[in-house]
Amino acid sequence: MRFGALLGLHGLVIRVDDLAAAERELREALGLSVLRRTRREVVLGEGPELFVRLRQAAGARPPVVEEIHVAVRGLETRAGRPDALGGLAVVRRVSGSTLWVREFRSEPGPSWRKRRTRSRPRRPRSR
């Protein structure tokens, strides 16, 4: 796997035993909104660029980071596969977690599209 530059971490998938508590704590701590929700998982964040996906664990266990998503620039094209986030991604197993190395290249698929927002002009700071 080759790429030009590492842009940063943009997503985590965490398995938790108390989905509701983890969601509440993360929303309070980071102010993240809910991108989508099912009975067994909730995706918090703004869109593909920044998300935390919480999955319900089968029983009472310590939280486990299942997936780590990082964004890069200049990913060697042959290595990657298109994904639903609008990226080209390479997947590796790293110490029990799955590492996704992704270059964003196009618009996200429907499941990752944020609700449309009307952007407002920036207001100059008052002195």
């Binding site: 940063g8 703004e46 869109g47 593909p48 660029e49 920044l50 964003f104 618009e107 952007s119």
Partner: peptide
């Protein structure tokens, strides 16, 4: 002028 900083950082190229 139109997107948030995290979006700009990760998605401006796309």
């Amino acid at each position: 002028d139109f997107v948030r900083p995290a979006e700009h950082h990760f998605l401006a190229g796309a």
